[in-house]
């Protein structure tokens, strides 16, 4: 059978009385190269470790996180970096050691010397499979939980008017068209602004659509992103928790002036927001 030869190991049949697992591990670690690779892995791992914070520092340059969603995103990015460092460090350590540690030949002619014929290694392959599966499982579980969390924080499964809390959520109709964003506030007499005004700590729901081509509504520091599709309305939402001025960019190529299709978000305290809305012509608060 072909399958048998495929997965057969070339190793000699394992004797029934192999040394105990601990003994075998001790024997393996006692090999010089094994110890060197482990040390190298740890060193490379610690060299890579600061990346976890540097990545967040780059993301936070313009004031993020300004919402619980963005906090969840940054937490995800941080932990994904942390869990992927050991595996990356191990692979890099093997790369480095295989060039510098084990033998190396750089002649023009094929080397006469042959290397050990390791066709497979049950322990190694099982460990790799288990570790990578556990990591993938972790990613999936983490991703599912976080996705459920940000879903609950955005468009959610709960209709806007049934949200807990004494305050009605703010509803904003976002319309993309080449190459401007328009924000309409149906709760404020349909006041319309080119800059997105939000109220601090008040949930906001976005209905997003487009009048021509596909745009992508990206409120960068709030961690909100959804396509503005022509012929369909998409929903998302967020609760801004930080007052300040943030960015809206278009994250989907939308033609000639795609690069300039950006505007600002002003997250204002409650009174200032009400005043701003009155100024825009939306006197009635809902």
């Amino acid at each position: 059978m072909a399958h048998q030869t495929l997965f057969d190991s070339d190793e000699p049949e394992a004797p029934t009385n192999r040394p105990a697992a601990t003994g075998r591990i001790r024997e393996w670690v006692s090999r010089p190269y094994a110890r060197a690779i482990l040390i190298l892995t740890v060193v490379i791992g610690f060299v890579l470790l600061p990346l976890a914070w540097l990545i967040l520092a780059a993301m936070n340059q313009t004031g993020a996180p300004a919402s619980p969603i963005m906090e969840e995103i940054e937490k995800t990015v941080f932990w994904f970096t942390i869990v992927s460092i050991p595996m990356t460090a191990f692979v890099f350590a093997v790369l480095v050691y295989s060039l510098l540690g084990w033998k190396r030949i750089s002649s023009d002619d094929p080397p006469m010397q042959e290397s050990p014929a390791i066709r497979t290694n049950r322990t190694g392959t099982i460990m790799w499979t288990v570790v990578s599966s556990v990591l993938a499982f972790f990613l999936v579980v983490w991703g599912m939980i976080e996705l459920a969390a940000i879903t609950a924080n955005s468009y959610g499964t709960i209709p806007a008017d049934q949200q807990p809390g004494d305050e009605q959520p703010l509803i904003v109709n976002v319309t993309g068209q080449q190459w401007v964003w328009t924000f309409e506030y149906p709760g404020y007499d349909g006041a319309t602004t080119p800059v997105l005004y939000l109220e601090k700590d008040r949930p906001v729901y976005f209905n997003v659509t487009s009048k021509d081509v596909i745009h992508n509504f990206w409120a960068v520091e709030l961690g909100v992103k959804i396509d503005a599709n022509p012929g369909a309305a998409t929903q998302t939402g967020v609760t801004p928790t930080k007052a300040g001025v943030f960015n809206v960019r278009c994250a989907e190529l939308c033609g000639l002036h795609h690069a300039y299709m950006e505007t600002t978000i002003e997250v204002l305290p409650k009174e200032v927001f009400a005043a701003a809305m009155r100024e825009m012509g939306g006197g009635k608060t809902s």
């Binding site: 468009y155 209709p159 959520p169 509803i171 149906p186 729901y205 209905n207 309305a233 939402g237």
Partner: peptide
């Protein structure tokens, strides 16, 4: 279909 998604408005 878009009509199946909850409509906050």
């Amino acid at each position: 279909s878009p009509s199946a998604s909850p409509s906050p408005s």
